[in-house]
C-alpha cells in the first residue's frame, strides 16, 4: 500500500487532486481492529472545473497517462483497487480539511478523523455503516466533545440517538 500512497502524494504534488485522505473501511481500520475490505476508499478534493461540475474524469485521465486503468469503479494502483470519492457535501469537505497527517512506514499520508468517519457512517446509513459505528464506539478513542459538535452542525444528532439507544 506504500506505493499506492506515494502515487497519491505525487498526484497531489502535481495538482491533479487538491487534497486526499483515506476513508471507508481502511480509514476505520486505522483506529480499530483490522476489518475485511477489498478496496481502498480515498476521499478527494479536486481542482475546480470551469463549469463547477464534480467529476473524476480528469483524475482518471491523469491516472491513465501514468499507466493506471479503471477496473469497474476502482483504479488499480500498485496492486490496490482504489475507489476515489469526491468531497460530495459539507461534512466530507470538513473531514478532508481536518484529516490526520500520518506516516505509513516512511510515506506521509492522511486519514479521516475517527469522529468524521463515524459521522459519515451515520449520514450514509447502511447496515454496514451501523456496524462500523458500533466498532468505532468500542475501539476508537473518540473525542466526544468534538464528535458532539460535528453531529450538531451536520444535523446527525437524531440519527446518533436512534443508532445508539
Amino acid at each position: 500500500m506504500k506505493r499506492t500512497l506515494q502515487l497519491l502524494n505525487d498526484l497531489e504534488r502535481d495538482g491533479v487532486l487538491t487534497r486526499y485522505a483515506i476513508g471507508g473501511a481502511m480509514g476505520a481500520t486505522f483506529y480499530t481492529e483490522p476489518v475485511l475490505t477489498f478496496d481502498l476508499d480515498i476521499f478527494v478534493v479536486l481542482p475546480r472545473t470551469p463549469g463547477g461540475l464534480l467529476t473524476l474524469s480528469s483524475l482518471y485521465e491523469a491516472l491513465r497517462a501514468r499507466g493506471y486503468t479503471e477496473e469497474n469503479d476502482c483504479v488499480l494502483i500498485e496492486g490496490v483497487p482504489v475507489q476515489f470519492l469526491p468531497a460530495y457535501n459539507s461534512l466530507v469537505e470538513e473531514a478532508l480539511n481536518q484529516a490526520r497527517e500520518i506516516m505509513y512506514e516512511d510515506v506521509p499520508a492522511r486519514v479521516l478523523r475517527s469522529e468524521h468517519l463515524l459521522a459519515i457512517c451515520l449520514q450514509t446509513g447502511r447496515d454496514k455503516d451501523r456496524e462500523r459505528v458500533r466498532i468505532l464506539r468500542e475501539q476508537a478513542q473518540l473525542d466526544t466533545n468534538f464528535l458532539a459538535d460535528i453531529l450538531k452542525r451536520h444535523q446527525l444528532e437524531e440519527k446518533w440517538k436512534l443508532w445508539t439507544e
Binding site: D10, F38, R66, G67, G79, V80
Partner: peptide, 27 residues
C-alpha cells in the same frame, strides 16, 4: 469474484512512475 491485494505488483506499463528518487510528498 474478489482479488486479494497484490501489493508487490508494479505498474508494468509505467515501471518508472515510482522510483526511490521520487518517493512522493504532500505539499
Amino acid at each position: 469474484m474478489v482479488r486479494p491485494w497484490n501489493v508487490s505488483a508494479t505498474n508494468e506499463k509505467n515501471p518508472s512512475a515510482l522510483t526511490p528518487t521520487n518517493p512522493g510528498r504532500i505539499v
